[in-house]
């Protein structure tokens, strides 16, 4: 179990992670979702012992991972910058991981290298952005670490490479279940793979629940302005727009059967809100988060 307690990371006057408390059960695929600069990388850096929190704590099965030899060996953190010596050849980098990671799977690494058509003789600094990301994916998956953290690893990868990445990740997870945390803002692409979503915005936790529940939370209600207004009263409105006398509100919180019946008999149209749209609404700058929490 990964437990974050009042986790806070500050850079000078900026608070990147603001008192986040969350528990993550082992063996699941998590999506850490947030806009750029929402604090995802800072949070993951603490989790992977790359940095100390400013306050609060992270524990993994009760122990702090920071400078913890056993725990750090079992965590792989791949971030977009790829922590490698730029002058090293890609193959040299994989060899190092192979030697240092107790659970490294050389066969999987070779398969992924072939899938992504990586040239291992190339120097890390000479790889294109997409190839660099692919190399990160190879490291992240072939390490097969009990805690695998992939932070926006898809940068520069084209759609085909991303699809291959998702497919290989799921296939390997099915054979070797482990905790995978995938940070992304391309939610639509990965939503079906995630067991739970954790959404943070401006350093604060907005949502943590299973993906299917989250998916059914959003609903758009369309109809005559006054009817819509009455229906939306007392509910969490994420967004609204009007066209003439027609009004549409995006509600958060899910409707029960009674609500739906009431809406339909009042002549309102209910449409589901896609998971990506829901995320955008929840993290839009003008939205007041406290209403959701």
């Amino acid at each position: 179990m990964i437990s974050l307690r009042d986790l806070t990371v500050r850079y000078g006057a900026t608070t990147a992670v603001d008192s986040i408390s969350v528990d993550l059960a082992p063996g699941k695929i998590y999506g850490l979702l947030g806009r750029n600069g929402s604090g995802k990388t800072s949070l993951l850096s603490v989790l992977s012992a790359y940095r100390k929190p400013s306050s609060g704590s992270v524990t993994i099965d009760g122990s702090d991972p920071f400078e913890n030899r056993e725990l750090m060996r079992d965590i792989v953190f791949v971030r977009d910058a790829l922590d490698a010596v730029e002058g090293d050849r890609a193959g040299t980098l994989l060899d190092l991981h192979a030697r240092m990671r107790p659970s490294w799977d050389a066969e999987l690494a070779a398969k992924l290298v072939a899938t992504f058509e990586l040239d291992l003789r190339k120097r890390v600094g000479a790889l294109s952005r997409g190839q660099r990301s692919s190399l990160g994916v190879v490291i992240g998956l072939a390490s097969r670490a009990p805690l695998t953290i992939l932070d926006e690893v898809y940068l520069g990868m084209d759609a085909a490479a991303r699809t291959a990445f998702y497919r290989e990740m799921l296939a390997d997870y099915l054979e070797h279940p482990r905790t995978i945390i995938l940070s992304t803002h391309l939610i639509q692409e990965v939503a079906d793979l995630l067991e739970e979503v954790v959404i943070i915005d401006r350093g604060r936790l907005v949502v943590h629940e299973d993906t299917d529940t989250f998916r059914s939370r959003g609903v758009a209600v369309t109809g005559p302005a006054d009817v819509v207004t009455v229906f939306a009263e007392g509910r969490t409105v994420l967004a609204e727009q009007s066209l003439g006398r027609t009004r549409q509100v995006t509600l958060y919180g899910g409707l029960d059967a009674d609500d739906r019946e009431r809406a339909e008999s009042a002549g309102l149209t209910l449409t589901p809100v896609g998971i990506q749209d829901l995320f955008v609404h929840l993290t839009s700058p003008e939205h007041n988060l406290e209403a959701v929490r």
């Binding site: 099915l174 079906d192 793979l193 299973d210």
Partner: peptide
């Protein structure tokens, strides 16, 4: 089923 439809096995 999960591998075929590319979904999380828990789902």
């Amino acid at each position: 089923y999960a591998a075929f439809f590319q979904i999380n096995p828990a789902t």
